[in-house]
Amino acid sequence: MTFLERNFLDIRNLDLMARGDSWPHRLDPRVKVLTTMIFIITVVSMDKYSISQLIPFAVFPVSLLAASGLPPGYFLKKILLVSPFALMVGLFNPLLDQTILLHIGSLGISGGWISLVSIMLRFTLTVGAALILIGITSFNGICLALEKFRVPKVFVVQLLFLYRYIFVLLDEASRMSRARSLRSLDIKGPGIKTFGSMAGNLLLRATGRAERIHLAMLCRGFDGNIHTMNSSSLYLKDILFLLGWTVVFYLLRTYNFPELIGNGVLNFT
């Protein structure tokens, strides 16, 4: 499978997951988007050397994942796949920050290693939360949430159209690149020149399609306004979800529970 086909499959998978039916799926998209944003900001606001305090934050993605019945392995794999950039930048930390911050026996661990671990933890948490958000919320739902958040209609409609036609154009693009690779008898991608005319052809088809869509829209009385049926309402459970998690994040941010627990355990023994 090519890069393109793999990604296409990926979108289709997530799209299918988002059509599931569990209580996280049924929550209003607005509270899911907001809660995820608060989660990410809280995680990112943690001190750069924090490790133990970051760990309890996993309760948010883990419980959502569990409650929605989505496959955890799939999300772990996705997180691993995109980790190289954060890892690459983070790897400089151990080289540059060699102040010893922790001694385990005779082994000194520098601040750089600690902050690297912290970066990777943040990465897993933030990326995980974002992926789970799209796994339990349809893209359409997210767009409608954005509309309710007063994001300009032009952009919301753009997102909806983009998402709709990704499915058509990815299909066209994969057919085209399959046809090319079948005739070029190599495993590598096309050269720049070939790519230029492939992309050019794809672009021509895309503009042709845009013209036909525009005709189809005119045909049904389009006058420049897209009317969306956006009539969701917030229920008590939605508010509770948002407030409950916000309180949890606030507590996790303020108190270092793992250390408290750890101290308790060590004092007890």
Partner: peptide, 21 residues
Amino acid sequence: DPDDQLFMPTVLDDVCFGPLN
């Protein structure tokens, strides 16, 4: 090509597009 005609996010949205206009 129905893909040109069905441009809204869901079937209902799409069929409503004309009447709403």
